[in-house]
Design a binder for these strands. Structure first.
Lengths: 172, 1033
DNA sequence: GCAAACAAGCTACACATC
DNA sequence: GATGTGTAGCTTGTTTGC
């Protein structure tokens, strides 16, 4: 707990203001895969801050959802289980000498038309499973002014006042 | 034949074949031998007249592996064995035929009977209910397809029929095998039946099926199989290459790493140029690094090697002047091929013989060396600045004053080429080393002269001005030079006009200009019904508000009489283009920049008043750029800009909207709300209206992106406007506006995760958003006819997941240990649980409950809040009749909550002394304080914020908190009622009225989504005065 | 010196289960 | 449809062969 406190202090000292760039790359990287939005959105871990910005992990290691502690205790069984399963798989062998008369009937059996075909609605898709045009929204794009793209706002400096009228001072 | 003997032989055949299968299932090792044995058994059986018996037992034994799952290695081994056996027989026959051997024993007949019987046998399982059987059957067919020789027509038809059915099998694995089979029929059909290549329906059937599959199959693997196996000819190639934008990453990558690679040199010849450009752009701009790398590798490795390392030839093939993405391509190439980099040389001898490719390489190489600090290469290859300017001038002369060039160059370069070369040299010049004063001056002269050329293209103006900026001593110097150029262009034109007038005599020829203007005004009118009124009010607005226009009377403008000595509209455009490029690079305030102020008077203000749309738009852009330099000017022009957005045509709207956003970005809220200023509500309304208007999708995107920027910058903090923003993301009427959706998909999470206050704003509005969208979804399910239209709306479960994610405090940046205590998401959950009873549809309730466990709980969070959630969920569990899935999810939630609360109790046991006597409610007050001393976003805080913004939606949101009728009927739960009532007292005096308001809010929202029903329903603000409100300012 | 071959490790997608 | 597990298809790094 103490460690965390120290780290936090360090964060507060170093992160403030300086790492606007890091925050920008952080967002760009983490939102890279969700660019299509809406139905194509997927839950994904917002984690990799450590790699983006050098030492300071701006994003604390996300506490794993309940039951974190139980993970390490009784885990001896799992690998053995897996091995057993794989062994069982490999153990399978067919006895080609056995003549089972009913066998073919079972396999080729009655034709229940219904279940084996793909539903009609899935057979055609207007998107043709192609990506839409990518408009490449990025922190770089949204921090630039529209009519003066050489000038950039600093949007990620953390400001105290929510009203923040002057805090959005544009930089060059 | 004797019976006992027969049985004996029959059994022996069975045993022998079975033994082979038995052995072959365990390993691939002995397969060669096994095949030899099988052949021996077969020929012996045939010799003894037991051909049928062999075929029978062989088929029977193969049946045994049909039910084996896809990943069962035994199945694969036997399949391979069968394939190898058949292939071996086939090969022997072909060899024998080739060498013209006498086939003594009808080997051909034996083989074809064997194959025929085998295929017919396994086809019995092609429609088996067991998916594994169908898979194995088609797998067997696929592996033997190359070696079945000739089959009779009935079998052929049966096969094709089966395959065409199985291509629509339920299981992707089966379809993949069906694709493999079908691919084998492409070639044959074309060679058999097609003499000329046409897309004749019958003959092209297999290929056509595969084309349909590559585009329409839901499984990425099936599309992949089709892509990799479809015959690659002119007809099919577009369908294959289109997969460079497949939704699946691997498929996209394969286009570069497999398809294009295998095409070799024919890539450059057989692919249509626009497709080729697209492929490179898609590859290099792909979101996935693996795709990007595959494309980079293709270009810088495979293609360069194909062309024997000839970089110039590669650049020719890439058509560098056509596609801007080539910059990225060559950067990648430099990075991955240092061997190539070191070979690049620019001896002075070629300086005057630049081509498109060489000039491009020159510029790219320079940038690369500069960016990577490779000084030795810079010194070696690039001359002093004066030389560069000399060469630049050479090409400028060639392009614009060819008659002045003494020795015509050996190669005749066209204008486009020359302009491209000039552009490359200018791009190089912008970052060139001009420490040598002589060089700087000579370059400056060249560039200034160039910028004075009226025939200069826009891209050259832009880069030319940038070069001039980099050459200038300071900004003042730069502005002086630019304005000098602008003035000269205008003065020359006026002088020219005067000259012409003097020459021709009178001003009878009002000429084309007037006509042009009339036409464009008519164009505008077509866009907007009341355009005439608009133009009138527009002009009067200009009259009153634009600075420094004191003397021009309204009637002058209305009559469209140009003032004396006005430059032609072409010239005005030239000047405005130059001035906007200049202004983009200026940062000193207008007060210190007297020259720009004069430019406002002479050029920009008249342009804003101009009736020609293109001039007016350029004028507004220039005006905007000036406003960015001066807050006073910005304040004074906010109104006119607002007018442009609300009354202008689409392109004027577009520009003016951008200007407004930029002004807010630079000056913040100081430009609104004050004496003589536009009030912010009016501007909010403008944004509402644009965002709502899906007739102008581009403007919607600007509004969306702009609003997101301003919210991110905390310039805008209004909850209603924010809610509108989020609603337009989810709104089905915007689902086809890709740019809008992508803007939101990026901006909303950035907003939510960039600051706790932002996330709190989302949390405050999220429940209302969810409710509104649930109501809408429900509505659409019952009213909207087509499936497609219904699917334009996101299902509530997805919306809920999304909102949970956005409000998850673990996603915040700059986390501190107080993040664990953050209850921003919990307040959202409480709101959702409060509105839960208002949802009638079981389906929606289910969708919410089954996702509710994605909410993050931790024992560090506020005790009373957790307790409150538990109480609400207990209420739902008690009073609602739920299906088992919902109930399980809810129980899971309650269990989790109980566990967390339990843990808090345990922890607090150390602190609290007499825990046995303390009730939970008492706990909450104790723990609430102690656990929240670090957390800024306590529930109290968020309520304060809500009260602060107590207008519009917020009201609606509070109304929604009121329990609905069903709740009242079910009023045996006194605890809950008490809580609701207590809360309600703080917000509204009358439950009844609130309820009515609530329903109306919901109805109203529905019409927001379907705007044709009620025009301004999107604006959640109750008292919207409509379009005229802005003029009241 | 380059390419082929191989294992180890990774991730998006597919599959299985309830 | 949410969930957890399995796996195809790489990518990376190392070794080996031509």
């Amino acid at each position: 707990q103490d460690e965390e406190g120290d780290q936090d202090d360090e964060k507060n000292n170093t992160v403030e203001g300086i790492f606007e760039k890091d925050l920008m790359t952080y967002f760009d990287e983490n939102l890279n895969r969700n660019w299509r939005g809406r139905e194509h959105w997927k839950v994904r871990n917002f984690k990799k801050m450590n790699q983006v910005s050098k030492g300071a992990d701006l994003l604390a290691k996300t506490p794993a959802p309940a039951g974190d502690a139980t993970n390490q205790n009784t885990e001896n069984d799992k690998p053995t289980d897996a091995k057993k399963k794989s062994k069982q798989k490999k153990a399978l062998e067919i006895d080609f000498f056995q003549k089972d008369d009913g066998f073919e009937d079972k396999i080729f059996g009655p034709k229940g038309r219904a279940k084996i075909d793909m539903p009609i609605k899935n057979r055609k898709n207007d998107s043709h499973y192609l990506l839409p045009d990518d408009f490449h929204f990025s922190t770089d794009k949204i921090t630039r002014l529209f009519i003066k793209p050489g000038q950039k706002m600093s949007l990620f400096q953390h400001k105290r006042h929510p009203s923040g009228d002057t805090s959005s001072r544009a930089l060059d | 034949m004797q019976n006992s003997d027969g049985n004996d032989i029959n059994t022996r055949i069975f045993n022998s074949v079975a033994e082979v299968f038995q052995k072959a299932q365990s390993s691939y090792a002995g397969h060669r031998k096994h095949i030899a044995v099988l052949k021996k058994i077969q020929s012996k059986a045939v010799e003894q007249g037991y051909e049928d018996a062999f075929n029978f037992w062989f088929d029977k034994l193969v049946t045994k592996i049909l039910p084996l799952k896809k990943n069962e290695i035994i199945g694969d081994r036997i399949v391979k064995l069968v394939a190898a056996f058949i292939a071996s027989l086939d090969r022997e026959l072909i060899l024998a035929k080739k060498q013209d051997y006498q086939l003594t024993n009808d080997e051909e007949g034996i083989f074809s009977r064997f194959v025929d019987q085998f295929i017919r046998h396994i086809l019995r399982g092609v429609e088996s209910l067991d998916k594994n059987v169908r898979f194995r059957v088609l797998q067997l067919l696929a592996v033997i397809m190359d070696n079945i020789g000739e089959i009779d027509e009935s079998l052929f038809n049966l096969l094709i029929l089966s395959l065409n059915k199985r291509i629509h099998d339920r299981e992707p694995t089966v379809r993949i095998q069906a694709v493999f089979c079908l691919t084998k029929f492409q070639d044959e059909e074309q060679t058999e039946h097609l003499t000329e290549l046409s897309d004749d329906e019958d003959n092209y059937e297999a290929t056509r099926t595969l084309v349909a599959t590559i585009q329409n199959d839901p499984s990425a693997e099936v599309r992949r199989a089709a892509m990799l196996n479809l015959i690659n000819d002119n007809n099919t190639r577009p369908y294959i290459l289109e997969r460079a934008r497949d939704v699946n990453i691997i498929n996209r990558r394969l286009v570069y790493s497999r398809i294009l690679k295998s095409m070799g040199k024919s890539c450059f010849d057989d692919i249509e140029p626009h497709i080729f450009d697209q492929l490179i752009e898609w590859g290099l701009e792909d979101r996935e690094s693996s795709v990007k790398n595959a494309c980079k590798r293709l270009i810088s490795h495979d293609w360069l090697n194909i062309l024997d390392g000839d970089l110039i030839e590669l650049l020719e093939k890439l058509e560098v002047s056509r596609s801007p993405v080539c910059v990225k391509a060559i950067e990648a190439l430099f990075q991955s091929r240092p061997d190539v980099l070191s070979k690049i040389k620019f001896p002075e001898s070629i300086w005057k013989d630049f081509t498109v490719e060489i000039s491009f390489l020159f510029r790219a190489f320079y940038s690369y060396c500069l960016d990577n600090d490779i000084t030795e290469m810079l010194e070696e290859n690039f001359p002093e600045a004066s030389k560069l300017s000399e060469h630049l001038n050479h090409y400028i002369l060639l392009r614009f004053h060819r008659e002045d060039v003494p020795n015509d160059p050996p190669v005749d370069l066209d204008d486009r080429t020359l302009e491209f070369i000039i552009e490359q040299l200018l791009i190089t010049a912008e970052k060139y080393d001009f420490s040598d004063e002589v060089g700087r001056r000579s370059m400056l002269t060249v560039v200034r002269n160039m910028l004075a050329l009226t025939a200069l293209s826009e891209s050259l103006i832009e880069i030319g001005i940038r070069v001039m900026k980099s050459l200038s001593i300071n900004e003042r110097d730069f502005v002086t030079m630019a304005i000098e150029i602008i003035n000269d262009i205008r003065d020359d034109d006026i002088e020219k006009q005067e000259q012409e007038e003097r020459n021709k005599g009178k001003k009878n020829d009002v000429s084309d200009d007037g006509d042009d203007n009339d036409n464009s005004i008519n164009d505008d009118a077509a866009n907007d019904d009341d355009e005439d009124d608009n133009i009138a009010s527009f002009h009067s607005a200009v009259e009153n508000l634009v600075q420094g226009n004191g003397n021009v009377s309204e009637s002058d403008i209305m009559n469209n009489l140009p003032p004396e000595k006005e430059a032609s509209s072409e010239t005005i455009v030239l000047c405005l283009t130059r001035s906007s490029c200049m202004l983009e690079l200026v940062n000193t305030p207008l007060t210190e920049n007297i020259l720009i102020a004069s430019l406002m008077d002479t050029l920009i203000t008249p342009a804003v008043r101009n009736t020609a749309p293109n001039i007016r738009e350029l004028g507004v852009k220039n005006l905007g750029l000036c406003c960015l330099l001066d807050v006073k000017l910005a304040i004074d022009n906010m109104y006119i800009l607002g007018m442009c957005v609300s009354k202008g045509n689409s392109s004027l709207k577009y520009v003016a909207l951008q200007v407004i956003v930029d002004i807010f970005s630079v000056h913040g809220n100081t430009v609104v709300d004050g004496e003589g200023k536009v009030d912010s509500i009016s501007l909010h309304k403008i944004f509402y209206k644009v965002l709502k208007n899906n007739g102008l999708p581009e403007c919607q995107v600007i509004a969306a992106e702009g609003l997101c920027k301003l919210f991110l910058a905390d310039v805008f903090t209004d909850d209603d406007l924010f809610e509108t923003l989020v609603l337009s993301y989810f709104s089905p009427i915007n689902s086809s506006n890709e740019a809008l959706v992508q803007a939101f998909a990026f901006c909303i999470p950035v907003y939510c995760f960039s600051h706790p206050n932002h996330q709190q704003r989302m949390s405050r509005t999220a429940a209302d958003i969810l409710l509104r969208l649930c109501v809408l979804w429900d509505d659409m399910q019952s009213t909207v006819e087509t499936r497609v239209n219904r699917e334009a709306m996101l299902k509530p479960n997805i919306i809920f997941q999304q909102l949970i994610f956005w409000t998850d405090p673990r996603n915040l940046v700059n986390q501190t240990d107080s993040t664990k205590k953050d209850i921003v998401q919990l307040t959202f959950l409480i709101d959702v649980l409060k509105i839960f009873t208002q949802i009638e549809k079981k389906e929606i309730k289910k969708m919410i409950l089954t996702n509710i466990n994605a909410i993050f709980f931790s024992p560090d969070q506020d005790y009373s809040t957790l307790k409150k959630i538990l109480e609400y969920s207990d209420d739902i569990a008690e009073n609602d009749t739920l299906d088992s899935v919902s109930k399980n999810a809810l129980d899971k939630l309650r269990n989790n909550l109980n566990a967390v609360i339990e843990e808090i109790n345990e922890r607090s046991g150390v602190q609290a002394k007499d825990e046995n006597n303390t009730t939970n409610d008492q706990y909450s007050s104790i723990l609430g304080d102690s656990f929240n001393k670090f957390a800024n976003g306590t529930p109290d805080h968020s309520i304060d914020m809500t009260a602060e913004h107590g207008t519009g939606t917020t009201k609606a949101l509070e109304d929604i908190l009121v329990p609905d009728n069903a709740e009242e009927k079910n009023s045996n739960n006194s605890r809950k009622r008490t809580r609701s009532e207590t809360e309600h007292d703080t917000t509204s005096a009358n439950t009844e009225t609130s309820f009515i308001q609530n329903t109306s809010a919901v109805t109203k929202n529905v019409s927001f989504i379907l705007p044709e029903e009620e025009e301004d329903a999107m604006s959640i603000d109750e008292e919207d005065n409509g379009p005229d409100s802005f003029t009241d300012v």
